[in-house]
Write a protein that binds this DNA or RNA. Sequence first.
DNA 1: TTGTACGCGTTATCAG
DNA 2: CTGATAACGCGTACAA
Lengths: 339, 339
Amino acid sequence: MTNNSNKPVSAVPKLEDVARAAGVSTATVSRCLNTPDRVSRKTIKRVMDAIDSLGYSPNYSARALAAGRTNTIGAIIPTMENAIFARGIQAFQEELQKNGCTLLVASSSYRQDLEEEQIKTLTARGADALLLIGFQRDPHLYEFLEKRKIPFVLTWACKPSHEQLFVGFDNRKAMKELAARVISLGHRSLGCISAETATNDRASERVEGICAAMQDAGLDPGSLRIVETTYSIENGEKAFHQLLTGDNAPTAVLCGNDVLAIGALRGAAALNLRVPQDVAITGFDDIELASVAPIPLTTVHVPHRRMGQLAARVLIDALNDVPASSVELPTEVCLRKTL
Amino acid sequence: MTNNSNKPVSAVPKLEDVARAAGVSTATVSRCLNTPDRVSRKTIKRVMDAIDSLGYSPNYSARALAAGRTNTIGAIIPTMENAIFARGIQAFQEELQKNGCTLLVASSSYRQDLEEEQIKTLTARGADALLLIGFQRDPHLYEFLEKRKIPFVLTWACKPSHEQLFVGFDNRKAMKELAARVISLGHRSLGCISAETATNDRASERVEGICAAMQDAGLDPGSLRIVETTYSIENGEKAFHQLLTGDNAPTAVLCGNDVLAIGALRGAAALNLRVPQDVAITGFDDIELASVAPIPLTTVHVPHRRMGQLAARVLIDALNDVPASSVELPTEVCLRKTL
DNA sequence: TTGTACGCGTTATCAG
DNA sequence: CTGATAACGCGTACAA
C-alpha cells in the first residue's frame, strides 16, 4: 500500500479529505453534518460512510470561527467542592447535552475579581451563553454581556423586580419562613452562622430573612448574633463554639447551609450540648448529607436539580430567540430532629 | 461624536481594530500578546493602551485554529456529584489555571459509551490534553489518542506495568491493607458493598484486594458476599440490609466508598445493630463526610488534591515536551470508630 | 440538489 | 523590531 499524497498518513482528517473520499465538494459534506434535509439520501450515505472510515470529526474551532457559534455554554460557580452546586450543575449539564450543547465550568472561589476574569475568559472562548450564581456583581459586567449579546441566566437567587433572566429561589423568604418556625417554638435568643455576607448575596439575603422574622415576632433584629465564616464543616464547628461560649449564648443557631450546620452539630457534641433540647440547629439546602447527620437536620429544601435543568432550558430558548421568562422555584422548610 | 467607519459601534473589537487604533500591524499586536519580548517597550505600551480602551479580548477559536493549540485541557469524570472527584478536579483546575490553561469538564455517568463520546467531543473541541479516570476502556480509544498525539493521564488508579502515564494509587493494595486489618481483628465472615465491578476498574480492584487479604489469611475468597450497587447513601443502606438479613450474615462489611459506608451505617441503625460491636463497617476515600458520620468512619485515606495537582503538572509537562513520569501516590488506612 | 469561492480572527513565515 | 500575507478548517451566500 502506498501513500501517494504528499501528506503523512496519520494527519487528522478534515472536511476536504472526506469530500475527496466521497467524491463530493466540501460544501456538501458540511451540509450533511449541519442541514441534512438539504442533501439527497444517497449522498448522505456516501458521505457518512466516508466519515466513518476516515474517523473524521469536525474541528470545533474552525466551525466556531466560521459559524460564529460554539454550542458551548459556560457556568461560573463559586466552588466545585460543594455538593449543592455540583448537583445543580450536573442537571444543567445533562439538559444541555440533550440539546447538543457542551458545558464549560469555571470556578471563582467565591471571589468577584476571579469571577469577572472567568466571564471574560469564557466569552473569549466563545461561550454562547452563561450561567451565573446570584445577582451581586459589578454592573459593567452586565453591560459587557449585553453589548456582546450573550444571554445569561442568574441562579440560586431571585429578584423579581429585575429585568434579568433568572431561575432561582427567594433566599430571604425561605430563611424567614424557617426562622419564623424557630421563633414560634419559643426561641428568643438567636444566633446565625453565615458565609461572608459582603460578597455573597445568597448569604446576606438569608441573614435578612432571619432579621425579618424576628421583626415580625417583635424581637430586636439587632440582638441576632452573627458569625461569618467560609463554608466547611470545620469552620461551622468553630463558629458554633464561638457563639455558644460567648455571653448570652443563643438557644437556636441558624446556619447558612447544611455544611455549616453539620459542623455546628459537631460543635454541640464537643460542648456536651444536647440538640435540640439544649440548643436548636438548622441548615439550608437539604443536601443528602442533611438526612444522615448524626441527628437528622432541620433545613430548607431547595430543588437544585430542577433549577439546573430549567436554567438550561431558559438559555437554550434564549439562544433560539424563543422568549424565555424567569422562574422562581418554591422552597420548603424541612423539619427533622435538630429543632 | 460620530462613527465614521461603516461598522456598527457595538461590534466586538478584533485584532485589526486594535492595530488600527495603535497605528501598527496586526502582526505586532499579536506579538505583543504572545511574545512580548520581541516587541519594543514603546510599542507594547501603545498596543496595550489600545487594547484596554477598546476592551479587546482575543477570539480563542480563531487563535486555536491558527496556532493549533487551545490551552484547554479536558477531564472526563464519572460524575460531578461525588465529592471525591470534585475535590481532585478542583485541585487539577487550580494547577492548570496557574499555567494559563482552562479546564473543560465532562461527565460520563459511569458509562463507557458516553465516555467515548466525550473523548471524541473534547478532542474535537480542541482539548490539548486529557485527564481520564481509571484504565479500563476500549483499546482503540488509546490508539485514537495516540494517533492524534493528544497526551493523556490516567488517574484514580495505577498499573505500573502499563506504559501509559498515570497519577494514581493502587486500589487493590489499599483495600487489601484495610481488609487485612479487619481480618486481623478476628473477622472471618466478610461482606462487601461495591460499585459495579464490570465497568469500574477501581471498584473491581478494591474487591480483589479484599479477596487477596482473605487468601493470605487462609480464608476462602469465595465466601465473600458481594453486593453491587450504584454509589449513593440510600443504595448503601439497601445493600447493607440485604447483606445482613440474608443467611450467614457477615460480621464486617467493607464498602467501596465512604458514601456507601454512610448508607451502611444508617442500615445498621435501622436494624438495631451496634457498630462496631455487632458489625464492623469500613469505607474508602476519606471524604470530609467520613469524619462526621454518626460514628466516625474507618476508611482509606486517598490524597485527592495532591493527585489532581500532580496530574495537571504531568500534562503540562507533556505538552511542553518535558518528559513526565507516572506517580503512584500512597494511601493510608485511617482507623476511626466503625471497626 | 450540488459546487465554487470567499470570509471568519489569529498566528506564523518571510522580508524588510 | 516591524509589516505584508499566507495559512488554519469550516460555513454559507451565490450560482449552476
